[in-house]
Amino acid sequence: MLKVYLSGEIHTDWRERIIAGAQGLDVSFDSPVTDHAASDDCGVAILGAEPDKFWHDRKGAQINAIRTRKGIADADVVVVRFGDQYKQWNAAFDAGYAAALGKSLIILHGPDHAHALKEVDAAALAVTQEPEQVVQILRYVLTGALPG
């Protein structure tokens, strides 16, 4: 079984497209919590309120980091998606962490990010523009089959 961690932006359906396209392949998927409010507020919901937004966000980031570190460490392949709408600093951090652990890294972004992400792309084993290309890579890795 190939374990794939899906990191990055949470505002589009790219994860669902990869998971649906990989049906029938011997692959399991994990990801960060993609419910934005839950992700932002997990720290204060579990550890108590914070009047200062900095500490509110920090509690959430640290709890989320437990899940993210475990998911990346357990993964065979880490896919990191950079979307168009927001600057995903967390995605860049996840890509760097995965690269430092020697994980097979697939980056997913549009052509507008090619220059800004050149160092991240250089650390990847593949750079894709569409979720379906990620599925094709997974299929090839697991079966040796090229796209039909």
Rank of each mutant, 00 (worst) to 15 (best):
M1H: 11
L2F: 03
K3V: 06
K3I: 04
K3R: 10
V4Y: 05
Y5G: 05
L6K: 10
L6T: 12
E9H: 10
E9V: 02
I10R: 03
H11N: 14
T12M: 11
T12P: 04
W14E: 10
R15N: 09
A20R: 14
A22K: 01
Q23T: 05
D26L: 02
D26E: 13
D26H: 08
F29W: 05
F29G: 06
P32Q: 02
P32V: 00
P32C: 00
V33R: 00
V33C: 00
V33A: 00
D35Q: 06
D35A: 08
H36T: 08
H36E: 09
H36S: 12
A37E: 14
A38K: 01
C42I: 14
V44Q: 15
L47S: 15
G48E: 09
A49Q: 01
P51R: 09
D52K: 09
D52W: 04
K53Q: 09
F54I: 07
F54L: 08
W55C: 14
W55L: 15
W55H: 14
D57L: 09
K59C: 00
K59D: 00
A61E: 03
Q62Y: 09
Q62P: 02
I63S: 03
N64K: 11
I66T: 15
T68C: 10
R69E: 15
K70R: 13
K70V: 13
G71W: 02
I72E: 06
D74R: 05
D76A: 05
D76N: 06
V77A: 00
V78F: 06
V80M: 08
V80C: 08
R81G: 04
R81A: 11
D84W: 02
Q85W: 01
Q85L: 03
Y86V: 13
Q88W: 05
Q88I: 04
Q88G: 08
N90L: 08
A91T: 06
F93P: 02
D94Y: 02
D94H: 05
A95T: 04
A95G: 03
G96D: 06
G96F: 02
Y97E: 06
A98Y: 06
A98E: 08
A99L: 12
A99D: 15
A99Y: 12
A100G: 15
L101Y: 08
L101N: 10
L101R: 14
L101S: 10
G102R: 13
K103L: 15
K103N: 14
S104K: 12
S104H: 11
L105T: 00
I106C: 07
I107E: 03
L108V: 10
G110Q: 13
G110D: 14
G110A: 12
P111L: 11
D112H: 07
D112T: 04
H113V: 02
H113M: 07
A114W: 03
A114Y: 03
A114L: 04
A116L: 04
L117V: 01
E119D: 13
E119G: 08
V120P: 01
V120S: 04
A122L: 07
A122W: 05
A123V: 03
L125D: 09
L125C: 10
L125Y: 08
L125G: 11
V127E: 03
T128R: 15
T128F: 12
Q129P: 01
E130W: 11
E132L: 06
E132Y: 03
V134Y: 11
V135P: 03
I137A: 09
L138G: 05
L138V: 06
L138I: 11
R139C: 07
L142C: 06
L142R: 13
A145C: 04
L146R: 11
L146N: 07
G148N: 00
G148C: 00
G148Y: 00
